[in-house]
């Protein structure tokens, strides 16, 4: 039994690794094809029904607009991306710390949790002007807005994740005389990761939205600024190009977090389903 039994496991793992490229293609191809079809229908519709550009610019016009001042839009995109990533990182880290504090201190959680849940429901558009007033013009205030948005989802998910451990596993650690730090680092933290990534993925979306909305309120650069100025001058292809760029950074950012998730918690059931499907 011992000699032959190792084989099926090995092949399974090899099969999984070998199928990676094929799996990636399988994931990427359908949406790409759908994109081509949609762009084609859109282009044809604009031509056919002679839709004016300020209502709906054709994909080709958006593309031209993007190429024409591509350098400028790319620069604005970089700024928005930087604000989103920096705010995401700061907010998520601070949120994780608060989540850990909540998971370990019932009093703290009892006292503050209602406010955190309430704060989590404040709309960005309401809080962004206030934060910008506090942090002044420029990039730091945009980072503060995205950090604020990233803070609460991670605090809540971190807390929930740290509380979601298997109690029998905790008993195993207890019988093995594990220290509180060992329980945290080797048990509660790993079991919390699926929740943490739910929070992080929420934050990816929030932080891009947050950065752009903060730029709406006040900015002289960034995609939000481009969208606002393009709207005022009714330069719709430019507005659409900026929107496209914001979608692209959102997708790339999300893909990065999803990739890290996959590398960190391949053992989790949601990951397993994805490997199989």
């Amino acid at each position: 039994m011992t000699r032959t039994s190792s084989t099926p496991i090995d092949t399974r793992e090899r099969g999984w690794a070998g199928g990676r490229l094929g799996a990636a293609l399988g994931v990427l191809l359908p949406p790409l094809a759908a994109f081509v079809v949609m762009a084609g229908v859109w282009e044809a519709a604009v031509l056919l029904f002679e839709i004016p550009a300020y209502i709906l610019p054709a994909p080709s016009r958006i593309w031209v607009s993007l190429i024409k001042d591509g350098g400028s839009i790319l620069g604005h995109t970089g700024i928005t991306l930087f604000e989103a990533v920096a705010g995401f990182t700061i907010g998520s880290c601070l949120g994780a710390l608060l989540g850990i504090a909540f998971a370990y201190s019932r009093i703290l959680a009892r006292g503050l949790l209602p406010y955190v849940i309430a704060a989590n429901t404040i709309p960005v558009v309401a809080i962004a002007p206030i934060i910008i007033l506090w942090f002044g013009h420029g990039i730091p205030s945009k980072i503060a807005v995205t950090a604020f948005l990233s803070f609460f989802p991670l605090a809540l998910n971190m807390m929930k994740g740290l509380q979601s451990y298997d109690h029998t596993v905790m008993d195993v650690f207890h019988v093995a005389a594990a220290s509180p730090w060992q329980r945290f680092a080797k048990m509660r933290l790993p079991s919390s990761l699926p929740y943490v990534f739910v929070g992080l993925k929420l934050n990816v979306t929030f932080s891009v939205i947050g950065a752009i909305i903060a730029e709406f309120v006040q900015a002289d650069r960034g995609l939000g600024f481009v969208i606002m100025t393009a709207y005022r001058t009714l330069n719709m292809p430019r507005l659409w190009a900026a929107m496209l760029m914001s979608a692209i950074i959102g997708i790339l950012f999300f893909a990065l977090v999803a990739l890290i998730e996959r590398l960190l918690i391949p053992w989790h059931s949601s990951m397993r389903d994805r490997v199989r499907g």
């Binding site: 298997d166 596993v169 008993d171 195993v172 019988v175 093995a176 005389a177 080797k186 790993p190 053992w267």
Partner: peptide
């Protein structure tokens, strides 16, 4: 003292080797 529970209660994120070595690691 060693304890074996009704539910194996292994750490899903560790391979068998690291699971078996866990109490020694904690020690």
């Amino acid at each position: 003292v060693g304890f074996v529970f009704q539910d194996a209660a292994l750490l899903e994120w560790r391979r068998v080797l690291a699971n078996v070595a866990l109490p020694l690691e904690l020690q």
